[in-house]
């Protein structure tokens, strides 16, 4: 991969020449507002008082060393932290007018709107079709033609349709790792979410599959708000418009990726993006 060997600054420069830089900060279209978010595991505070606004139909990358709280932060947006024994969340997350963290919020409805792609591809040991149809079925769609339509559309959007359209009944476990991850993306798209949370979606994949996932993300951001956690800084620089840098649970710096990777305000951000630690 030629791109892998390029420096961060090269990537950013390339991006800037390729497409016009983001025209100013988004303000009107904010879809996710996080206010003073803290997450605790028992006595350990994994996320510390984070406040940020995430723009709609764009890609926001969260970077930082392992254990910096970025994954925990991501998982509070679809309340997956609820599943962890002893996890406690404070603060507010607003998805449009929905109070995400309120006990009154229906997590089922929330997770329909906020989809998630995991670090390791985790297809169910079912057929390709049944994997993609899982979400719609769970949400009450029974008609075969409707399911077929959704499955096809989702696989097309996930750039997997051409590879699998002839064997939709094949087990998902027989796909390659990269195909499995795109299948997992198709599975999420079939639920028609507004937000896509991606927790290091390419970290278990080879470089070619990684590139395909990145291309796919750039395609998807036209319709979805994407938040991606990654510790591959080249990846963050390549795909995201905005980047947030986390360290020890704190959001150190958040802004345009072009800025974060070239002229960060914070010394710690600069140390991290230039590879001096982490």
């Amino acid at each position: 991969m030629v791109k892998e060997t390029l420096g961060l600054k090269d990537i950013v420069a390339e991006k800037l020449t390729k497409r016009e830089a983001q025209s100013g900060p988004v303000s009107a279209n904010d879809t996710i507002s996080i206010r003073n978010l803290s997450v605790y595991y028992g006595d350990n505070q994994a996320v510390k008082n984070v406040t940020m606004d995430i723009g709609a139909r764009d890609i926001t990358a969260l970077i930082g060393p392992s254990g910096c709280g970025k994954s925990t932060f991501l998982r509070s947006m679809n309340r997956m932290n609820d599943l962890i024994l002893g996890a406690r969340t404070e603060g507010e997350i607003w998805l449009d007018a929905t109070d995400v963290l309120s006990p009154a919020t229906d997590v089922v409805e929330l997770r329909k709107r906020v989809g998630m792609v995991f670090q390791r591809p985790n297809p169910f040991p079912k057929s390709i079709f049944d994997n993609v149809a899982y979400g719609p079925r769970v949400h009450g769609i029974r008609r075969r033609d409707q399911l077929e339509e959704t499955v096809e559309q989702s696989l097309i959007r996930a750039a997997l349709w051409d590879e699998v359209k002839d064997n939709l009944n094949k087990s998902a476990m027989d796909l390659s790792g990269g195909q499995q991850q795109r299948l997992c993306i198709a599975r999420v798209l079939a639920v028609q979410p507004e937000v896509l949370l991606m927790d290091e979606p390419a970290s278990a994949l080879d470089p070619i599959s990684t590139l395909r996932i990145e291309e796919l993300m750039s395609e998807l951001k036209k319709d979805y708000t994407i938040i991606i956690v990654t510790h591959n800084m080249q990846q963050a620089a390549r795909v995201s418009t905005y980047t947030g840098f986390f360290l020890s649970g704190e959001l150190i710096e958040f802004g345009l990726s072009t800025t974060i990777f070239t002229t960060p305000r914070e010394k710690r951000t600069e140390d991290y993006v230039t590879g001096r630690f982490g």
Binding site: S33, D53, W94, D96, A97, D99, A104
Partner: peptide
């Protein structure tokens, strides 16, 4: 840095 937006109205999606 994205600018602070005005906070969304204090509405709750009450359980239907």
């Amino acid at each position: 840095m994205a600018t602070q937006t005005t906070r969304p109205p204090e509405t709750r999606i009450t359980a239907g």
